[in-house]
Computed example of a mutant assay.
Amino acid sequence: MPIANIPETYLQNDKAIPDLLLYDFKMNTDLVKSKVHLSMNMFSFLQVGKKQVHFAGNSVAVNKDQSLLLKKGNWLWTELLENEPTYYCKLFFFSDKKLKDFLEKHAQNPIVLSNEIPYFIISNDVYITTYLNSLTTISKAPAIFFENLLALKFDELMLYLLQKYGSQFEQYLKSLIADESSTFKKIVESKMHANLKLGEIAFLCNMSLSTFKRHFVKEYKITPGKWLQEKKLEAAKEILEKGKLKSSDIYLDFGYNNLSNFSLAFKNKFGYSPRNINSKT
């Protein structure tokens, strides 16, 4: 899967990336799954369809009733049509410079960097709907006015979200320009049950697949495939110990094609068959 460099791919004639950029993204395909390198923070105002995104230690899914503010970095995202013929999302990119300028003017609270979530969910209320209509209107303005109008609209949106979400939103904005990065283990372990391929997890770690595998063995002293199998078996054991489900109920959920293979792997790991688990607890 090729990596899409966004917003660079939306610019024509190799133009320099502006501090603020507005882009209407539309598609007619039923399902698009993309690897994305996002070089700017971005508002994703979903108008039609559904969107799911994975980033380092987190993932989130939204529909047209919600929008996202996404931190720059590497993402995996999936865009899906619903009952409409066209998927539509209005994207609003902004630079660190614009964000720092805004915070210098309007931030009120001290920085508290306890929240590392790389996205912020926004409810699409009446204001957001009206605001998006206004963005469509100014996009038709002459170029000489558009840049100044867009700067005003950026501040307007930020001020509204500060008023609506308060210090929670302010701390999130500050986290976007803080010098923090997720550790390798945190990313790997958060994606253990996300049904992602190793290459996709490697991408979220900003590594090639070969580099990811070498680093994984260095950190865990085991290959990724074997480590993942063991973690899945441990999770299966916890479920079976609760006594509500049997092996036949869960083996498919843990990646096994048949009950026999699951039982054999379980016995090799723990020394006894899953059907004997009650006598071992």
Rank of each mutant, 00 (worst) to 15 (best):
L46W: 06
N115F: 02
S190N: 11
I201W: 09
K105G: 00
K221V: 07
I111K: 11
I138E: 00
I222Y: 02
S210T: 14
A61R: 14
G271Q: 02
E79Y: 09
K153C: 02
N41Y: 04
F262L: 07
C89P: 00
K164L: 12
N278H: 10
F45Y: 10
P7C: 00
E238P: 01
E104I: 08
N28G: 10
K26L: 07
A151E: 15
L204C: 03
V126G: 03
Q52S: 13
K100G: 02
L80Q: 15
G57R: 13
E241G: 01
Y256N: 04
S139Q: 10
L80E: 15
G166H: 02
V112G: 01
I187Q: 04
L176D: 04
V53C: 15
F203W: 05
L135P: 01
G166A: 00
H54K: 10
K269R: 10
K105P: 00
T29W: 07
K221Q: 14
Q229Y: 05
I222V: 12
W75Q: 12
F145A: 09
K64Y: 10
S260P: 04
E156N: 08
N148V: 03
I201F: 07
L196Q: 07
A265G: 03
P118R: 04
A151V: 07
G57W: 03
K98V: 04
Q66I: 01
S139K: 07
T136P: 00
P274K: 04
L198M: 15
T86N: 08
E189F: 04
D19Y: 05
E116Q: 14
E189D: 13
G199H: 07
L31V: 10
K164A: 10
K15S: 15
K26I: 09
L76T: 02
T211S: 13
Q108K: 13
K197I: 10
I121H: 06
D249K: 00
C205N: 15
I187L: 05
D101E: 15
S279T: 05
L68Q: 03
K164W: 08
K221Y: 12
L159T: 11
F120T: 05
I144M: 06
K237I: 00
L196T: 05
K267Q: 11
K237F: 01
S248D: 14
Q52W: 09
D125F: 02
K98T: 07
K232V: 00
K164V: 13
L99G: 01
K100N: 09
L198Y: 14
L252W: 08
N133S: 13
F254G: 06
I128L: 15
A236R: 06
K185Q: 14
R275F: 08
S279E: 12
Y23W: 11
E82Q: 13
Q229V: 08
L103G: 03
L209Q: 13
V188C: 11
I239F: 00
A4K: 12
K71Q: 14
L162T: 06
L38C: 03
T78Q: 14
K100F: 05
K213I: 14
H215Y: 11
K213M: 12
L240V: 02
N58E: 11
Y131G: 02
S260R: 14
Y256T: 05
D96K: 09
A61G: 14
N115R: 05
E156I: 03
L103S: 02
L264Q: 15
R214S: 14
F93L: 04
K98W: 08
I138D: 01
I277S: 00
L150H: 03
F270G: 03
L20P: 00
F146N: 00
I144S: 10
M42I: 08
K218L: 12
F25E: 12
